[in-house]
Nucleic acid binder design. Structure first.
Length: 416
RNA sequence: GUGGCUAUAGCUCAGUUUGGUUAGAGCGCCAGGUUGUGGCCCUGGAGGCCGAGGGUUCAAGUCCCUCUAGCCACCCCA
């Protein structure tokens, strides 16, 4: 059997790549206006980086990472997300010594060893956005506004931004305990998964889909009521700013994210029509992460969206790419002429196609039609002798005689 | 990682229930009808180890097992 691609890893062919290019071009344009610069970081990092940032007990670190020992014995991991590597680069460069906030974005592949399904791959691609060296609520608002603008300009219809605050190290433990007290008394009514969640991440019980858990969670304490004063005013300011900026969002007290480092503001962009994999973008604030990775006590916030998932929501490109000129040549002399003529035209930036073989005129025209060529230049022994070719307009079907030495000029780009 | 569905021509799919002569269709591709003119139409042609491996049987695309991949749900996430 022939060799197959690795499970969960897909080839992106030109038609699909065009959609990605459109998305990336728009991202670069929108992010530029907000002052973000593009960064590239390595796909491989030391395993320890992810263990320390994402959290030892998270699903990603426990069972989804592509981890291996390199030839020198170091444990390396293919990045499962972008934030950790980006923060590492930030600390390593000591750019934190320059006044912030530092606004960066990164486009590239991520790797997670999960069971593939639609919208979920083992190698997938993210556009990741981070603001480092800033704790102010304006930063949260700005980045959410940027996400909202981007999605709106992309023209996606039904995308909702969900927003929540997870509190901070000062107030979350208190909430967590209150929630545990509440749910602990109802342990018997929880599903098997949720009993496990009581130990790992009790907040997740809140958005369990099992009916019994939904009922058991009725009347559970709300994070919003347990936020400390600082978190409360931070969250209020974020909401005030994005509300005034016209961002459509809804509060979702059950929005809990799976990475340990998130605190305070978390958000997610959710689309219908994507089945279970409906989150097209997600992110949040992670003050404390930079310090935990050996940097200064600076804040940070960011989000990422998945190119594959966005692409699933986008219509195919409506205008197919088509050559401007197809040269149908009959006989060796004409074919030789067409080759050098094409070289000159292509040098001018004109998309020219030639027939790969010396086929009948009919076959060459069929191919020109197939490729959707705008015009066809027909040349054979007679035309070479006369120095004049037949230029055919494929849409209308009409055809005119043109001196061969004027072909290049005819397709010259308009002079500036 | 768990459970379910699926895999036949380049593509979309019949055929599998009730095993039985050379495995079909539409679209696409190639050629001819037009000795040098595309699309529409007509005619003809090429193209399949029926996902891979093993088993049952006189006989397997069809039944059984294993593997691989895709899809759906869970878990989790982009």
């Amino acid at each position: 059997m022939s060799i197959q691609a690795v499970r969960g890893m897909k080839d992106v062919w030109p038609e699909e790549a065009r959609k990605w290019q459109r998305v990336e071009a728009l991202a670069r344009q929108v992010f530029h206006a907000f002052g973000f610069g593009e960064i590239k970081t390595p796909v491989l990092e030391k395993t320890e980086l992810f263990a320390r940032s994402i959290g030892e007990a998270t699903d990603i670190v426990e069972k989804e990472m592509y981890t291996f020992a390199d030839r020198s014995g170091d444990s390396l991991t293919m990045r499962p997300e972008a934030t950790a590597g980006l923060v590492r680069a930030y600390i390593e460069s000591k750019n934190y010594a320059q006044p912030g906030p530092h606004k960066l974005f990164l486009i590239g592949p991520m790797f997670r060893h999960e069971r593939p399904q639609k919208g979920r791959l083992r190698q997938f691609h993210q556009i990741d956005v981070e603001v480092l060296g800033d704790e102010e609520p304006q930063g949260d608002a700005e980045i959410i506004l940027m996400l909202d603008q981007f999605l709106k300009k992309l023209g996606l219809g039904k995308v909702i931004i969900k927003l929540n605050s997870l509190g901070c190290p000062a107030c979350r433990p208190g909430y967590r305990q209150a929630l545990l007290d509440f749910l602990g008394s109802r342990r018997g009514r929880l599903c098997e998964d949720c009993r496990r969640r009581l130990d790992t991440n009790p907040l997740r019980v809140l958005d369990c889909k099992a009916e019994s858990c939904q009922e058991a969670a009725q009347g559970a304490p709300n994070m919003a009521d347990h936020l400390c004063e600082a978190c409360q005013s931070h969250f209020a300011k974020v909401r005030q700013l994005i509300g005034a900026a016209g961002v459509d969002y809804e509060l979702d007290p059950r929005l809990v994210r799976g990475l340990d480092y998130y605190i305070r503001t978390t958000f997610e962009a959710v689309a219908g029509d994507l089945g279970a994999q409906n989150a097209v973008a997600g992110g949040g604030r992670y003050d404390g992460l930079i310090e935990a990775l050996g940097g200064p006590a600076q804040g940070g916030i960011g989000f990422a969206f998945g190119l594959e998932r966005l692409s699933l929501l986008l219509p195919d490109e409506e205008t197919p790419l088509a050559p401007e000129l197809y040269i149908a040549a009959l006989g060796e002399e004409a074919r030789d002429w067409s080759f050098s003529a094409a070289a000159q035209l292509r040098g001018q930036g004109v998309w020219v196609e030639l027939s790969p073989q010396d086929k009948s005129l009919k076959a060459q025209l069929r191919r020109a039609n197939k490729l959707n060529a705008a015009q066809v230049l027909i040349i054979g022994p007679e035309e070479i002798k006369a120095g004049r070719g037949q230029l055919k307009d494929m849409a209308g079907g009409g055809q005119e005689e043109i001196p061969l030495d004027q072909v290049a000029a005819r397709f010259a780009p308009p002079s500036p």
